[in-house]
Write a protein that binds this DNA or RNA. Structure first.
Length: 279
DNA sequence: CTCCTGACCTGAGTGC
DNA sequence: TGCACTCAGGTCAGGA
């Protein structure tokens, strides 16, 4: 499912539901995801209190305060991960086939992580070394922070021969953009996805920086993009699919010039664009 | 270094 | 109905 807007939607839901609440029970499926869930996760976090829920790129970082120490639960949703929040544990039923982690709270709520493809993962990390964690220490800037602008992009892309679309997916440059929003941002900026990253002018990089911010903010506001069966933690779908200009619209009319949207493949992944509006 | 390919998984959809 | 095949919101190791 999840790029930055979907992860942010999930983060907000967990924060609202769980911050201040105490963990009373933890159950893990035992199946290996991208890496194994820590075998002693129940022992490590039961009795802890969620103090805040943050996001870094596509990672969710939940701060948990234990009686004698603090830990951070890191969650990545991969391609197919989602989290459901049940208001009452009694109504949650048995663990489903692809449920990998269930966390019960003193309030009666239950958080359930479901991930059919198991490309996601859960880890517990030491907050003192969080920035140095192998999964986090090479991550690029937050696109919704104050560092994304045309100057940053021209510097980051300098000398890069790869296509701009591919560069936008590189989490070491900007953290959080995925396959949908890379196509959408390039459309808004009027930049052709195959253009070499290192050959984009400062002015067009400024437009691109604005486009990235714009599309991510708009998607968060809409609750993310629901493709297939993805839903938010409360079961609501995200409505940004109605605002997509190019993604998944091959052959349909461009919203700006009415020419047919094209699909191509770049490093194995589908890219959608308007050949008229994007140069 | 840079960049691309293939691998990791399951499930939905398509065409025969 | 069954089967073979393709594709999907991500990332990482390995090799050219």
């Amino acid at each position: 499912m999840p790029e930055l807007p979907e992860v942010e939607t999930v983060r907000t839901a967990i924060d609202t539901a769980a911050t201040g609440d105490t963990i009373t029970a933890v159950a893990a499926s035992g199946k290996k995801m991208r890496w194994p869930i820590p075998h002693d996760i129940s022992r490590q976090i039961t009795g802890g209190v969620f103090t805040s829920v943050r996001r870094r790129g596509k990672y969710i970082l939940a701060d948990i305060k234990m009686p004698v120490k603090e830990t951070v639960m890191l969650i990545h949703l991969g391609m197919s991960g989602s989290i459901r929040i049940y208001p009452d544990q009694k109504d949650a039923g048995e663990a489903g086939l692809h449920d990998h982690l269930a966390i019960d709270l003193a309030s009666g709520k239950r958080l359930v992580l479901n991930d059919p493809r198991r490309f996601g993962g859960v880890d517990l990390i030491d907050p003192k070394n969080e920035a140095g964690h192998p999964l986090l220490h090479r991550m690029g800037i937050e696109p919704l922070g104050n560092r994304l602008d045309g100057a940053f992009l021209t510097t980051a892309f300098k000398g890069k021969a790869m296509a701009i679309k591919t560069a936008l997916l590189d989490q070491r440059i900007i953290a959080g953009i995925g396959n949908i929003y890379a196509s959408e941002a390039l459309f808004l900026a009027g930049v052709h996805p195959a253009r070499k990253a290192g050959r984009i002018s400062l002015g067009r990089c400024e437009k691109l920086a604005d486009a990235i911010r714009q599309v991510l903010h708009a998607a968060i506001k809409a609750g993310g993009t629901s493709l297939r069966d993805h839903v938010q933690p409360g079961g609501e779908i995200g409505y940004f699919i109605q605002e997509l200009n190019v993604y998944g619209r091959e052959g349909e009319a461009c919203t700006r010039c009415a020419k047919p949207i094209r699909m191509t493949r770049q490093t194995g992944r589908a890219t959608y664009y308007c050949p008229q509006c994007q140069r």
